[in-house]
Design a binder for these strands. Structure first.
Lengths: 256, 256
DNA sequence: TCACCGCGAGTTGCATGCAAGGTGCGGCGG
DNA sequence: CCGCCGCACCTTGCATGCAACTCGCGGTGA
């Protein structure tokens, strides 16, 4: 069963169990962080959040710990947490690392290929994405969903739990995640061309995996991530686009 | 200043602040896990640990959470933690992933090389390792230290915080960490040859980085990790060696 | 006027109490 | 005798209280 579409403003964030206070705290604080409710480097203390989130310190503590672990907060040496700030260079590095890992996923998928089920699924995702025919304000959320499913499927086919964890870790930085750099044409004018290139990458990935061309699969997987890098470089000069990047306020543009 | 040698029985484990109950709980439970105090898949409940570690549930809870995050425990869907068990395949995948990441570190170090300081340090580590001249019971701890410093230095030269975190994550699985698969000759007879190959890899890495041969650096970095894989395959048929691998009891050898 | 010391507020680490949920066992009924 | 239901204990999630620590400010003395 395919995952339900999660096309909210803060999409591309992994869903978590909502039935515990800790999970709600995690989601709530993450949302605050990504919406720029705190300044970069600001110290986060627990008591204000108690008032803001309406729960006791215990779940808030746990949530802060988790946020520190996924890299959105810094755990100070002595104690306490501060809002992590990212130099632009770190964002670019994160995208590069995602490329390496997705390339590895594609390579392993090619090396370990067995059966047609995975390939068929990938081809269907490709077809669906091509059927969208452009990134309008209405279709781009759907595209992000399909795109996410496509890459998840490759990850499945790679069959490496460790790789899955590593990629999850990288993608937990919102602006490095695969769908963070997708904008409708109305925001970034040249999205159409970018989309075409992305779709070509997808086709090439499927073909390479199908033919067990593992080196080609790895190369294309890497190159595909560089696309996000290029989109980011364009978006940097576009305030509208930059504002839409989740967690964009955590990026320190003045620091290379 | 070089890091102090940490050649205890459970070396190769990142040091943590010992001044907090949580840190002590983390270390204590990790030690229990790696020494096989629990069966694979066993459920870990908090109260027994309260008695065993002499502290309240709060720090134990936090420590369990952290252990789950680094992958030594499974956080059950509903609640509670169980001891993670690793199929042999996952261990091999972890080593493969480490190869990918260390290859990437070497590539980035080559691409971003500036100045001679890093290279000089690497060369010194190489000299020191070669000066050991064999892996006796007395020298192999020192070798692991030097080896760890060498790879850390390359990671520094890569200059990617994201990459550092990813590698740290992989290395937190004790049997995948770079020094887990180093045995003195008295345990694994052919360690001498393996050591020679490792030293050659190190030299090749330094040379490739120095000449900015980034592709070569990446390849050698990957291949270097495969050495651990081969040592593991030999060690699998050697009970003595296997017992020395930290966390070896968590590996389910019957499951591929 | 400047420097140092001490106190106080704020903050975190930890312990513990309480309630809710789950699981297993025993008893009861068929 | 077997199966099912209910109760009780075990376990965890969360709240809260307490103590220690830090940082900063103000007062006092040189």
């Amino acid at each position: 069963m395919p995952k339900p579409s999660q096309a909210s403003e803060l999409r591309a964030l992994p869903a978590v169990d909502v039935n515990s206070q800790t999970a709600r705290a995690f989601i709530g604080i993450r949302e605050l962080l990504l919406h720029g409710a705190f300044a970069r480097g600001e110290r986060i203390s627990e008591l204000p959040l108690v008032a803001r989130l309406g729960m006791s310190r215990t779940p808030i503590r746990l949530a802060l710990e988790r946020l520190a672990h996924i890299g959105l907060l810094d755990a100070g040496a002595t104690s306490g947490f501060t809002v992590r700030e990212f130099a632009l260079r770190e964002v670019l590095d994160a995208i590069e690392l995602r490329g390496v890992l997705e390339g590895t996923a594609a390579r392993l998928a090619a090396e370990r290929l067995s059966g047609e089920a995975g390939l068929d699924a990938l081809r269907r995702y490709c077809d669906d994405m091509e059927a969208l025919d452009g990134l309008t304000i209405h279709t781009f959320a759907r595209y992000m969903d399909l795109n996410g499913s496509f890459h998840l499927r490759i990850l499945d086919m790679a069959g490496s739990e460790m790789l899955r964890r590593a990629l999850q870790q990288v993608n937990s930085l919102p602006f490095a995640s695969p769908s963070a750099m997708v904008f409708p044409t109305s925001i970034l004018p040249r999205s159409g061309e970018t989309l075409a290139i992305a779709l070509e990458h997808h086709r090439a990935l499927v073909e390479a995996i199908a033919r067990r061309q593992s080196t080609r699969a790895e190369s294309v997987g890497r190159e595909h991530a560089y696309l996000a890098r290029r989109v980011l470089e364009v978006a940097l000069s576009n305030t509208d686009a930059l504002r839409r990047v989740p967690g964009g306020s955590l990026i320190d543009l003045s620091r290379r």
